[in-house]
């Protein structure tokens, strides 16, 4: 068994090495996949320069702030709803009911919950056949692994979405949650009915100025009276920067 896995790893290193060697990247997936962009769900589309996820790119979602998992799943929901296959590697606690609520097609979402130390091999294999791969790497991810996986995504024309507080690679785009609020909870009454997240996107080079958008999940704060005629309480979290410039999509 060890021999087989080792062989897979060696093959992987060989192909990734070959693909990563020539400088710059021409989209090799172009002949293979007709469309260069994967759709992004409505509220987030305004963040992206081309209103879509470019195939071959790497998106890092910063896990430091709360709401990162929702943001990452919302990012996957666009391609998933459009028929793409998505995979999640290393997320044993991914809540599938929540994912379905965010618009993901669960039937086309493959999970490798506990890949163990072979997560780079697993993620690379998924990148070959899936349009979007959500990776939750362990804390000790090495820069070499990160570079190889990014190169593999470029070569395969799929999108690598990384959910991590510190990704050692060179991401094309970084998404983070700036703040958020909850809808529906009062002191002891109600239930969580919705949330709003302030999302910021930072690109590389010219796109390094952050662009911001609002992501509303479930019932938004400005939807008027909630269930049962009562006005749902609005919990505003500390440190929110409301409407900080940029194209706020909704």
């Amino acid at each position: 068994m060890n021999g087989y896995a080792g062989r897979v790893a060696r093959d992987l290193v060989a192909t990734v090495g070959a693909a990563g060697a020539p400088g710059g990247w021409a989209p090799p997936g172009r002949a293979l996949v007709p469309e260069r962009l994967l759709p992004v769900a409505g509220q987030l589309a305004g963040l992206f320069a081309e209103h879509g996820l470019r195939r071959g790119s790497t998106v890092v979602v910063d896990r430091a702030a709360p709401g990162a998992m929702s943001l990452a799943l919302a990012l996957l929901s666009g391609p998933s709803a459009a028929g793409s296959w998505c995979a999640a590697v290393g997320a044993p606690d991914l809540g599938l009911v929540g994912a379905a609520q965010l618009g993901l097609d669960i039937a086309r979402l493959a999970l490798a919950p506990s890949p163990g130390p072979r997560w780079p091999v697993v993620a690379a294999a998924f990148l070959e056949g899936f349009d979007v791969v959500l990776l939750v790497p362990p804390g000790d991810a090495r820069p070499a692994d990160a570079r190889r996986l990014e190169a593999r995504a470029r070569q395969a024309g799929s999108v690598l979405a990384v959910l991590s507080p510190a990704w050692p690679g060179v991401a094309d785009v970084r998404l983070s949650v700036d703040g958020g609020s909850w809808t529906g909870l009062e002191d002891g009454a109600g239930y969580l009915a919705g949330r709003e997240l302030q999302v910021a996107l930072t690109g590389r080079g010219a796109a390094s100025r952050p662009r911001r958008a609002r992501l509303v999940v479930g019932q938004g704060p400005d939807r008027g009276p909630g269930v049962g005629g009562r006005r749902p309480g609005l919990v505003v979290l500390g440190g929110t920067s409301p409407r900080a410039g940029g194209p706020g999509g909704d």
Partner: peptide
Amino acid sequence: PGLAPCVVHP
């Protein structure tokens, strides 16, 4: 009812 959690601890 309402929002479903995106992280469910096994």
